[in-house]
Design a binder for these strands. Structure first.
Lengths: 136, 136
DNA sequence: GTGCACCTTCCTATCATGTCAAGGTCAAGG
DNA sequence: CCTTGACCTTGACATGATAGGAAGGTGCAC
């Protein structure tokens, strides 16, 4: 199986497959005489695994650990769960920060006419840093 | 005022001030005879504006537009509000995606013993892609 | 006149991914 | 046999916002 077919089968672009090989996330694929990479079912499983992990937002470093655990039959599920929990915590923290920003901005927007006049509490807050606490 | 003092006063690192100057986000600062950058109150206001906008998650491109509007006395507050609304929408979309991932992962984690045994629904889902829909 | 803290420019790295370019390979059809 | 087009190869460069460091100049206090 060529890299293009592997890409289509797993949803990982050929570009990223080569990249993952280069950074050592997946082992180097076999080669034909002409130098084309060759992929077997095991490689496809690994690539699909990676794609699903990426879809869940795991970083490459975390996926590296997850792959190692996946291939370790003596793994402790606690190790997997810990990685997942940490990732969940990170995502929740990101959401919290986003929520804060959304909250502030929506608050400011609510008081902005949004018409042709130049007065704008959004710009005022950015300019003075005072609108946030003192307003309301 | 030196770049270091300006950095401390505005909360933008000297590194980033130089960067913003290089990409044309702020006009080039004046220089002393020795080539040191010099900052005045107006520059400090601009840098503080940028920092607050960054704190609210605006991209450099958006900040560029906001700065232009800020310095335009004939601006329409609607233009400002539109930028803010778009940014809010982007952040909400990010939050939605994060929430989806968190939801899936928490669901999987809930069924993972998290002990010394190797069985792990998290790894199973990553390996087969089947746990998500069929479980529960 | 020395030492230290600051400044300058330039290079490199992050993270995951995309794009582009120049060239090699393969299979099908004229 | 030769061309065409689709695929593959490597390599370089870009993104966005920020950090780090190296190598060298400057300013000021002692």
């Amino acid at each position: 199986m060529n890299i293009g077919e592997a890409a289509e089968a797993t949803g990982v672009t050929a570009k990223m497959i080569r990249h993952y090989e280069q950074i050592g996330l997946v082992r180097a694929a076999g080669r034909t005489g002409a130098g084309y990479r060759v992929y077997g079912p095991k490689d496809l499983s690994t690539l699909s695994f990676i794609r699903r992990a990426r879809d869940l937002g795991f970083s490459i470093a975390q996926i590296r650990d997850l792959l190692a655990l996946w291939q370790d039959r003596a793994r402790a599920s606690g190790d997997v769960k810990r990685i997942a929990s940490q990732h969940v915590a990170e995502m929740k923290e990101k959401m919290r920060l986003l929520q804060e920003m959304v909250h502030t901005l929506e608050h400011l927007s609510a008081h902005c006419h949004g018409d042709d006049r130049p007065d704008c509490p959004i710009l005022e807050q950015l300019a003075t840093g005072m609108a946030e606490e003192k307003c309301c």
